[in-house]
């Protein structure tokens, strides 16, 4: 069986997989990192989004072996060791950017990639466009967009702390 060596959330793992094992299957079933969800399994819903070498990808449409040597970050790897949430996680909480929560890990991972790639800032329209690969079936997009906008200010150093939700 192929072996794959990846660094997940800063920790190196060498895992035996089948060539056909998806990255999301390896993360959930072998590394027990079940924060990454499988929604549609057809690369549409975005519940499985993780970062591979800093870029958001759908882990249901990537083979584990394709991630050989990569740095993978999942939702479990965002908070600091002392439990301090990432500004994007904190913003999702403050702005109540979730209802059932199923899409949330993927939303947060996509949102971080979106904000990091746009240091000049994002309009509401650009945030909505940037989330085109993530589906929230509670249709809770409104607060998600607000949360991302607020988190972007903190991530880009424009505010030290999150603006409180109105």
């Amino acid at each position: 069986m192929p072996q794959v060596t990846v660094t997940v959330n800063g920790q190196a793992h060498t895992v035996e997989v089948e060539a056909r094992t998806l990255l999301v299957e390896m993360l959930r079933e072998q590394l027990r990192l079940t924060g990454t969800h499988v929604g549609c399994d057809t690369s549409q819903c975005g519940a499985c989004v993780v970062h591979v070498n800093g870029e958001s990808v759908k882990a249901c449409t990537l083979l584990a072996v394709q991630a050989e040597g990569a740095q993978v970050t999942t939702i479990e790897g965002l908070a600091a060791a002392d439990g301090t949430l990432h500004p994007m996680q904190e913003a999702f909480r403050e702005y109540h950017a979730l209802q059932c929560g199923f899409c949330t890990p993927g939303m947060v991972m996509s949102a971080i990639d979106l904000v990091q790639k746009n240091p000049q800032g994002l309009t509401e329209h650009e945030i909505r466009e940037g989330l085109d690969g993530n589906i929230c079936r509670c249709t809770g997009y409104h607060n998600i967009v607000k949360a991302i906008s607020a988190a972007a200010e903190v991530m880009h150093g424009q505010r030290a702390e999150l603006a409180p939700a109105g």
Binding site: V49, V57, K58, S110, L114, G133
Partner: peptide
């Protein structure tokens, strides 16, 4: 093309 994650891969 596609969505953000598709464009990344």
């Amino acid at each position: 093309v596609g969505d953000t994650q598709v464009r990344n891969r």
